[in-house]
Amino acid sequence: MVRLERRLPIRGSPTNPRNARAVAGVFVFACALLLAGCASFWPQTAQLAEGLPPGLPERVELSEVPFFPQVEYQCGPAALATAIVASGVKVTPEELVPQVYLPSRKGSLQIEMMAAARRHGLVSYQLAPRFEDLLRELAAGTPVIVLQNLTLGEGWHYAVAVGYDYPAGKLVLRSGETERQVLPFAAHETFWKRSGYWAMVALPPGRMPATAEEGRWLSSIAALERAGGASGARVAYAAFLERWPDNLGAAIGLANAHHALGELREAERVLRAAERRDPNSAIVLNNLAQTLSDQGRDEEALPFIERAAAAGGPHAAAIEETRRAILERISRKK
């Protein structure tokens, strides 16, 4: 005690052993905080650092992906054009401005980015919010649009990931006015995390995302079909059924796409196969009856629509309407 008091005048100097110990303690504590911080700030990067996920190459760069430098605020059209052109469809950012850009928000919404790609015959797919999935799409040769936030506020920004270098821990992007931006995984994650790891790909209908999940990929194809892309949807459903042959929704979708394109024979063939596999599906029975009726084969259609009506369920009203139309056609023929 006495000695300490004697040293009072120089307290605060780094040579004071007690003070040095305190500084060291604070330092260790800060390091611990920092390390704990790393894991929580960049959880996916930390996970990736544990090892390259199986099946992925160490380095990928899709150097053939084009670059459209953005003009003011218009990273949405620029990023979308990058992905669309990489999928083999000709388009310019200027043509996409009226399709995705919102003048008074000075930006583009995620939903509109997804929707606009469909207008060019592509299937938009939102990736699962996983860094690994982003790398898998790149490894499969697909550029990925990501939504980042580079500021402390509303600085949302679309960029297109086109490659990575795993040993160096770096991601390569086309971003804004930079043709080849190289960001450490952790930096990208910091910006990307704030959008909830939002990422999308836009693929030609015959190709499937490397990370496609059955249900969500089916919805993505149905979205293209709904947006008027029946011929694209037909191709996409057929590819889907090669991978998941038992998916009833995809069979119904394929038949509907054929029907919309006037290919009634093909629609019938698909629906008959689906009916054999799933004889109690009211939708399959209804659509098969409609397809037969549209070929003038109303008598053949009748037993199917009766079965659909007997199955009941949530589409009873639509089925009853089909049944009435078929009966009317039959009575008109007599």
């Binding site: 990273c75 930006g107 980015m113 580079l150 500021t151 971003s175 910091t190």
Partner: peptide, 25 residues
């Protein structure tokens, strides 16, 4: 309330984050 992706304006934030990452890793 949905985010509208617009511009790469966060240069300062970018530098800070890069510095932090460089420092830690």
């Amino acid at each position: 309330s949905l985010p509208a992706g617009a511009d790469a304006v966060g240069v300062l934030f970018l530098i800070l984050v890069l510095a932090a990452i460089w420092y830690v890793w």
